[in-house]
């Protein structure tokens, strides 16, 4: 076994760290208020005062990007958190009970899988009005079947282990066994999946906000910034480039990190990679 961490983990972790740092920092400090309008200074070029310049209303670009990172991370954390919790609980239940309960949960998961996420988000926005909360609900919902499947598959493996049989022989209840033995032993694949779903969630949030179904003005969002910059493409292309770059950085970071974690948690996959 090679003790060195794979390159994709290192790069992924570095990108994620940058995005996370910006997001956390935005909660307590941004160079300017992100929505602070300064029309006299519109389309300012990068300078010591405005590192990346300002937009068509003179708002500081760095401040907006940072606040948008905070929003994006917040949406991803809450949505994946909810989806992961519910999905994992359902997966554990399916594996523990088996029989018709397992069948029911897995068939419902299939149904959830078959439902396009964007369509669901559009329906929610139509019914309750577009907002970031709707985006969170939509992403959480589409995450449930994913985590239910991953969890059930991994949990069924662990249920066949002899130490689980031993715990049953000791008189432990199914709930206690799921909590004490199954959950800690399936944590690795669930964490890997969560990391990958994080990347997906960032992308979906950006897409929905771009379509006007997510963050509403003046709430900052990379997707919304892209949408606004679109009309000014020829006048100020940098306004579209920076949020785009942020999305790529965040998605790539979490994607690489998730892939790398999967490699080390499943040695069979890692070995197949050329050295």
């Amino acid at each position: 076994m090679n003790a060195r961490l794979p390159v994709n983990i290192l790069i992924g972790a570095a990108l994620v760290a940058v995005v996370m740092f910006a997001a956390l920092l935005s909660a307590i400090w941004t160079p300017y208020p992100y929505a602070g309008i300064d029309v006299a200074n519109k389309f300012a070029a990068p300078s010591g005062a405005h590192w990346l310049g300002t937009d068509q209303l003179g708002r500081d670009l760095v401040s907006q990007l940072m606040a948008a990172a905070g929003n994006s991370m917040g949406v991803a954390v809450v949505a994946v958190g909810i989806g992961c919790s519910i999905g994992t609980a359902l997966g554990l239940l399916a594996a523990a009970k088996g029989g018709w309960i397992e069948e029911l949960i897995m068939r419902l998961s299939d149904l959830g899988f078959a439902f396009p996420a964007l369509l669901f988000a559009i329906m929610l926005a139509a019914a309750f009005g577009p907002s970031l909360s709707m985006v969170v609900i939509a992403i959480a919902f589409i995450n449930i079947p994913t985590f239910a499947r991953v969890t059930r598959a991994a949990a069924n493996q662990i249920w066949r282990r002899e130490y689980v049989f031993a715990a049953r022989a000791a008189g432990m209840s199914t709930f206690a066994i799921s909590r004490d033995h199954i959950l800690p032993n399936i944590a690795a694949p669930v964490i890997v999946q969560a990391t990958i779903e994080f990347a997906v969630a960032i992308l979906v949030e950006a897409a929905l906000s771009y379509l006007g179904l997510g963050a509403q003005p003046p709430e900052p969002s990379w997707g919304r910034m892209l949408a606004e910059a679109q009309t000014l493409m020829y006048l100020a292309p940098q306004l579209a480039v920076w949020p785009g770059l942020c999305i790529v950085t965040a998605v790539l970071g979490f994607g690489l990190l998730g892939d790398g974690l999967r490699d080390i948690s499943d040695p069979r996959l890692a070995r197949r990679r050329p050295a």
């Binding site: 130490y163 031993a166 715990a167 000791a170 432990m172 004490d180 033995h181 800690p184």
Partner: peptide, 28 residues
């Protein structure tokens, strides 16, 4: 109570052995 065949499989690798030994007590 029961003792199994595989000494490498019948103990949860992530748990300290004292924890595993106390499992039947907790179950009761």
């Amino acid at each position: 109570q029961m003792v199994f065949q595989d000494p490498f499989g019948s103990l949860d690798p992530r748990r300290r052995v004292g924890w595993s030994i106390a499992e039947p007590l907790r179950a009761m």
